[in-house]
Nucleic acid binder design. Structure first.
Lengths: 218, 218, 218, 218
DNA sequence: GATGAATGAGCATTCATTCAT
DNA sequence: CATGAATGAATGCTCATTCAT
C-alpha cells in the first residue's frame, strides 16, 4: 500500500502531501486521463521530475487520493449515537450524511468507477466503499425487522443496495448534473420514500407520517 | 446531427454502418479514451483513412453511437397498452423494461456521463435521455395521485427522479459491478419498494401485498 | 508536354478545361501545397476520381496551368508596331505592358518560383519566361546603342536583367505587398528611371525630359 | 516574440540554439513545408520530442529563424561613416552591402515571402524588413536632392522602392536562379544605373562618368 | 468517362517517464 | 532531494492516389 520512500524527512512529507492535495483538486475537476502530471506538479508548486520521487505513476497518485477520499467518506457518514429519536430520525440523519458525503466527493467517485473498468485494484477499492454503505444499510434494516418495525420479508442486502442506490444516485443527479433541489426537501423526500418502502411502522417518536392521508382506507 | 456525406451509395451506407457497429462494440468494452480509432477500423474491417470519410473524430463517432443507443432506450422502454392489470402491474412492467434497457447499454451510458463532463453536447444528450424517463415517471405518478391511488403530497418530478434513480443505479450495480441477483427477484423487489414508497393503494387487481404482514398493527 | 488522353471527346475536352481553369483560380489564391486536389475538383464541379483521368498529379496540373499563364504573358507583353513615337515612348509602352502582365499573374509566378526550387522542370519553365523578357530588353537596348541613343558601354544582357528586374519587382511590391501607387505614376517613374539609367539621349520626339532641371550644369 | 521557456539553463540554451541553427540550415535548402520537424531535430542531434520543449510548431521555429535573419540583414547593411568619398561611392558601398546581405539570406527571404501569403505575422515581419531598406534609400535620395545633387522631382519613396527592388531582384536572379555574373561587375553596373537614374550630378570625387561617351551630344 | 469509396504513407503532436546535474 | 531537459512510444489526422462500379 505504501508506495515509495517509506521513511521521509519533514520536507519530503510536505512535498508528498502537496502532491496528494494537488492531485485531489485536479481529479475533482477533470477526468482521469485529462489530468496531466504536469498539471498536478504545477498545482503543487513542484518540478516535474519530483513527482516520481514519490509516486510511480499517475495511477499510483490516484490510488492514494482515492484511498484518502474513501476513508473520509467512511468516517463522515457514521451516524453517531448522539442522534436521538426513533428509527425514522436515524434514517433521516443517515440520508443527510450520505448525501453530504457524496456531495463532497461525487466527481472523484465517478472517476473511481471509471478507473475500475480498467484497473482491478480500483474495482476493489470501489467495492470496499460500497460494501461499507451496503452493510450499514442492511444491518440497520435487519435490526428494524428484528424489532418488528420493518417488513421482515425484504431481503436486507438487496433492499439496502436499492435504497442506498437511490440516495447515491440522487446525489449524482443533484450535484453533478445540476438538478435543482434544496437539501432539506431532498432529505425529507428521500427519507419518506425510504421509510415507506421498507414498511417502517410508525412509532410514537416518528411524527412525519401521522397524518398521512395515503394510509389505505381499508 | 448527421455529419459528412449525407447522401451515400449502398456501399457507403454499409461501411458507415459497420463503423457505427464497431464503435458500439468498442465503446461497450473500453472507456472512451482507451478506444483507438485503429481498433474501431480493425473491428469494422476498414482502413484507417476510411474512418475519416464518415466521421471527423472519435468523438463524432461516439456522438452517433450514443444517439442510436439513446434512441433504442427510448423505444425499448415504452410500456405498451397491451400490459393489462392494475397500476402495480404497470409499474412492474415499467421497471422490468427499464432494467433491461439499462442492462443492454449500461456501460455506454456511463461513458456518456463521463463524456458529458468534458463536452457540452454530450451533456445535452444525456439530459434528454434522463428527461424522457423522468417525465414518464412523473406523469405516471401524477395520474395515480389524481386517481387517489398515490400519496398526493409527493412532488412528482423529484419522486420520479429518486425512484427512477433507484432502478437505474441498481442496473449499474447489478450489471457493471457484478452484484449477484436474478432479474425476477430484482424486479419484484424494486416494484415492491417503488409501490410502497409512493403509498400505492392496493386495489383488487394487485394481490402482492394482500397478505403483507408488515401492515401496521394499529 | 501533352499528358494523358491525347484524343478527347468534346465532353472530355470540356472537363479538362474546367480543371485547368479551376486550378488556375486555386493557385492564384493559395500556395501550391495548400491547394488540395479536392478543392480543384470542387471548383470544377467534378468528382475526385475524375481528376486522374486527365492529370497524373497536382504537379502535372500546375505545369499545365503555368504553361498557359506563361504563354499569355508572352503575347500580352509584346509592344506592337502600332506604338508610334520615339524610343522613350516605346520603353514606356513596354513598361506598361510588362507591369500589367505581372499584375495579372503575379501570384502564380511567385508559385512558379517556389516550385522551381524543388522541381527542375519548373525551373526550366521559369527560365524560359525570364529569358524572353530579358532578351527583348537586351535587344531593345542594343538597338538603341547601335543608333547611338544609349550608352554603348553597358552590357545589354546584364542591364536588361537589372532594369527588367526593377519593373518586375515593383509589380510584386505594388500588387502582392500592397504598396500604394497608381499605374500611371508608376509607369511614368519606371520609364524615367529606365531611360536615364541607360543614358537615353533625348530626341525631338521625347519631350518628358526636355526641361529636366537635373541636367549637369557642366 | 520569445515563446516558451524564457529562462533556461545553459544546457537548455545550447539545445535551443542548436534547433535554431538547424532550422536555419534546413529552411535555406528546402521550402517551408518540405521541412519536416524530424529533419530539424536530426540536424540538431536532438530527439523529436525535445523540439516541443522549445517551440510550439514548425512555424514558431521559422518565426524565430526569420527574426534572427532579418536582424542580421539590418546590421549587415549599414553603410558605416567610415566610407569616405562622394555620394557615388556611398551608393556603391550601399549596393555592395545590400547585395551581400541578400546573397547570404536570399532563400530564406523567399520563404518569408511565401509564408507571408498565408500568415499575417510573417507579412508583418517582411514589411518591417522592407521598410528599413526603403526608408534608408529614400532618405539618402532626399539628402542628395536637398544638396542639389539629384533630380528634385523624383518621389523619394517610390524611387527608393524601384531602385532598391532592382538590387534585391538582381540578387535573387544572380544567386537563386544562377545567372552568371561576378560581384564587382554587378555592383559597378547597379551603381551606375542607380546613379544615372536619379540624375546624380558628377562631383569632383566621382570619376566614373567623366568620360561617359553617352553624354548627349547636343 | 465519371464517380466516390477505400487506401495507407506521412507527419505533427502529446505526455509519461528517465536521468544527469 | 529537487530540477528540468531529453526521450520516444503512441496516436490522431490529412490527403494524394487507386480502383471497383
Amino acid at each position: 500500500m505504501i508506495v515509495k520512500s517509506e521513511v521521509l524527512t519533514a520536507r519530503g512529507r510536505r512535498t508528498r502531501a502537496a502532491l496528494v492535495d494537488a492531485g485531489r483538486e485536479a481529479f475533482a475537476v477533470q477526468p482521469l486521463d485529462a489530468v496531466r502530471i504536469d498539471d498536478v506538479c504545477a498545482r503543487a508548486g513542484v518540478s516535474h521530475g519530483t513527482f516520481y520521487t514519490y509516486f510511480d505513476s499517475k495511477e499510483a497518485l490516484f490510488r492514494e487520493v482515492a484511498g484518502v477520499v474513501v476513508g473520509e467518506m467512511f468516517t463522515a457518514s457514521v451516524v453517531g449515537p448522539a442522534v436521538s429519536g426513533g428509527p425514522y430520525e436515524r434514517i433521516e440523519a443517515a440520508n443527510r450524511l450520505y448525501l453530504r458525503a457524496w456531495a463532497a466527493n461525487s466527481r472523484l467517485v465517478r472517476m473511481l468507477e471509471q478507473a475500475a473498468t480498467t484497473d482491478e485494484s480500483f474495482a476493489g477499492l470501489l467495492l470496499e466503499l460500497r460494501e461499507v454503505f451496503v452493510r450499514r444499510g442492511a444491518e440497520g434494516l435487519r435490526r428494524l425487522q428484528d424489532q418488528g418495525l420493518a417488513d421482515p420479508t425484504l431481503d436486507p442486502r438487496l433492499t439496502a443496495i436499492m435504497l442506498g442506490g437511490m440516495v447515491e444516485h440522487f446525489a449524482h443527479v443533484w450535484l453533478d448534473l445540476g438538478e435543482h433541489a434544496d437539501e432539506a426537501a431532498a432529505v425529507d423526500l428521500l427519507t419518506k420514500l425510504w421509510a415507506r418502502a421498507i414498511g417502517l411502522t410508525r412509532t410514537s417518536t416518528s411524527p412525519p407520517d401521522d397524518t398521512d392521508p395515503l394510509e389505505p382506507p381499508r
